[in-house]
Design a protein around this nucleic acid. Structure first.
Length: 436
RNA sequence: UCCCCAGUAGCUCAGUUGGCAGAGCAGAUGGCUGUUAACCAUCGGGUCCGCGGUUCGAGUCCGUGCUGGGGAGCCA
C-alpha cells in the first residue's frame, strides 16, 4: 500500500528493518498506557509488535489518536523499527504516524477467559486470537509438508469426488443429499476407492480433501467434516506403506519444528516431545497389542477392535507413534487383503499418536483378487452393483497395492498438544454445531 | 443414541438452612515517565435459560422443556 513512500512490512520480518522508517498494517490487540508512554499492541497475521507513543517525542496529533482506538481497530502505524529488549518479540515501532482504517465496535472476545460455547458461536472472530492463529498456521504447515513429501516422491495429486453414489466402506453413517431428483448422493467418507483407480492409472497418487461422517460422535477426537490426506501406491505391500507412513509423519513433524517455532511457543508445546519423533517407530501386531491391553488389566477378546481406552494404554507405552498391524479381518473394512500366512488377519495398519491422541493413520494392503473381493463385498452385506467399477480395477491388470489415510485434525491436535480437534480446523462441523 | 455436569451483569463465576442480587474482568471517566492480561480511583450495568408447581416468600426446592459442556459407543 502507498503510505507516504514508506515501506509496508510484515511484522514477522520487521527485524530486517531495524533503524528504518516503515509502515505496519494490522489490528489493535490491546493497548496500555502509563501517562507519558502509550503502547499499542498490533497483529498483522504474521506476528505481533508493540507500537510505542511517547509524549514529547511522538507528534501530539499522533499521540492523541491512541484514545480513539479500541480492540480490533484496523490501523497502519508508521515509525522507526527499534531493537527493544523490553518488548515481546525484541523489536518495537516508535510511532510517528497512525492511519485509522476503522475504529472497531466493542469486540466481544477480550484478552480474558471465555467458555468454549461462547467462543465457538464467535468462531469467525475467535480465529484472530493468538492461540487460534498458532494452531491454524501449524495446520497449514502440516498440510504443506505432507503434500511436498508426496510431490517429492513421484506422487500425483488426484482429487477424489465429494459427492458419491454409495458408501465407501459401508460401515459408517453418511450424509445424504438429493441428486437432481433422480438419485440419492452421499458426501464422501473417504477418497480411498477412487485413489485405487488412480494408482492403476498414475502409479502413485494422493488426495487431500474433506470427508464426512454423519455419526453422532461427541468426543474430543471427532468432527462431522474432517480432512484426510490419502496416498495409494501400485506394486506395494503392507511393509511399503508402513515405511511410507513413518517417513511422512517424521517429515511433517520436522517441518513444523523448523518453520513454526513461534507458533509452538504460543501454544507452550513441549518441543522435546516432537523432537523425539524420528524413525524407526515401534511396530507391533494386533496380537501383541492385545497382550499389552490385557497386562494393563483390561478385558478384551480376540477379534474385537481396539477402543479409545485400549489405544491410550498402548500409545502410553511409547514416546513415538506406534504402528499396530494385522488386525482380525472382521474388525476391518471389506477391501483389506488377508494375510496369506494367516487368513484370519488383515494386512492393515493403524498408527497411534503418542500422548493419547489416538489413531492418526489407518491403511494397509488392498484385496487385489477379483473373486475374493466379490466375496468380501457380499459378506459385508454391500450391494455388488454399487462396487462394479471397483471390482473392475481387479480385472484389468490387477497388482498388489496399498495405501493409507492420515487424519489432518488429529495430527494437528497432537503436534499442537491441544486437547480437542475442534480447534484444529477453521470452522469445525460438530454434532449440534453448523454455525458459523 | 446413552450417562454425567452446568445455565445468575458484555465475559468468567460466587450466592450459606428458602428471607434486600454479588465479585473480578470488560466498558465509561480521571490519574500515573517503559508497559507486558500494566496498575490506582470513581461510575454505570440484571427477563437469575423458558414454562408450570410447592411456599407468606424461590436464584435456591420439585416437574418439564431448551441450550451448552464433558464422557461412552463408533471411527480418522
Amino acid at each position: 500500500m502507498e503510505h507516504d513512500a514508506k515501506t509496508t512490512v510484515l511484522i514477522a520480518s520487521v527485524g530486517r528493518y531495524e533503524g528504518q522508517e516503515v509502515a505496519v498494517c494490522g489490528w489493535v490487540m490491546h493497548k496500555r498506557s502509563s501517562g507519558r508512554v502509550r503502547f499499542l499492541v498490533i497483529r498483522d497475521g504474521t506476528g505481533v509488535i508493540q507500537a510505542t507513543l511517547v509524549k514529547g517525542e511522538t507528534p501530539d496529533n499522533v499521540f492523541d489518536e491512541y484514545a480513539k482506538l479500541s480492540q480490533e481497530s484496523s490501523v497502519a502505524i508508521f515509525g522507526q523499527v527499534r531493537k527493544e529488549p523490553r518488548a515481546t518479540g525484541g523489536y518495537e515501532l516508535l510511532a510517528s504516524g497512525i492511519k485509522i482504517f476503522q475504529v472497531a465496535a466493542p469486540f466481544p472476545i477480550t484478552p480474558k477467559e471465555h467458555g468454549v460455547g461462547f467462543l465457538m458461536d464467535r468462531r469467525h472472530l475467535w480465529l484472530r486470537s493468538s492461540r487460534q492463529w498458532a494452531i491454524l498456521r501449524i495446520r497449514h504447515a502440516v498440510i504443506r509438508a505432507a503434500r511436498r513429501f508426496f510431490d517429492d516422491r513421484g506422487f500425483s495429486l488426484l482429487d477424489a469426488p465429494i459427492l458419491t453414489p454409495s458408501s465407501c466402506e459401508g460401515t459408517t453413517t453418511l450424509f445424504e443429499t438429493d441428486y437432481f431428483g433422480e438419485h440419492r448422493a452421499y458426501l464422501s467418507q473417504s477418497g480411498q476407492l477412487y485413489m485405487e483407480a488412480g494408482a492403476m492409472a498414475l502409479g502413485r497418487v494422493y488426495c487431500c480433501g474433506p470427508t464426512f461422517r454423519a455419526e453422532k460422535s461427541k468426543t474430543r477426537r471427532h468432527l462431522a467434516e474432517f480432512w484426510m490426506i490419502e496416498p495409494e501406491v501400485a506394486f506395494a505391500d503392507l511393509d511399503t506403506v508402513m515405511d511410507l507412513a513413518e517417513a511422512l509423519v517424521c517429515a511433517v513433524v520436522s517441518e513444523v519444528l523448523e518453520q513454526r517455532g513461534p507458533e509452538l511457543d504460543v501454544l507452550e508445546r513441549d518441543r522435546r516431545k516432537l523432537e523425539a519423533i524420528r524413525p524407526p517407530f515401534p511396530r507391533i501386531s494386533y496380537d501383541d497389542a492385545l497382550r499389552r491391553v490385557r497386562q494393563a488389566g483390561e478385558e478384551i477378546s480376540w477379534g474385537q477392535d481396539l477402543g479409545g481406552g485400549h489405544e491410550t494404554i498402548i500409545s502410553g507405552q511409547f514416546d513415538k507413534p506406534v504402528l499396530i498391524h494385522r488386525y482380525p479381518i472382521g474388525a476391518k473394512a471389506f477391501y483389506m487383503k488377508s494375510d496369506p500366512q494367516r487368513p484370519e488377519v488383515a494386512l492393515c495398519v493403524d498408527m497411534l499418536a503418542p500422548e493419547g491422541y489416538g489413531e492418526i493413520i489407518g491403511g494397509g494392503q488392498r484385496e487385489d483378487d477379483v473373486r475374493r473381493l466379490k466375496e468380501k463385498i457380499q459378506e459385508a452385506g454391500l450391494p455388488l452393483k454399487d462396487f462394479q467399477w471397483y471390482v473392475e480395477l481387479r480385472q484389468y491388470g490387477s497388482v498388489p497395492h496399498a495405501g493409507f489415510g492420515l487424519g489432518i485434525e488429529r495430527t494437528v491436535a497432537w503436534i499442537c498438544g491441544i486437547d480437542h480437534v475442534r480447534e484444529t480446523i477453521a470452522f469445525p462441523r460438530l454434532l449440534d454445531r453448523l454455525y458459523p
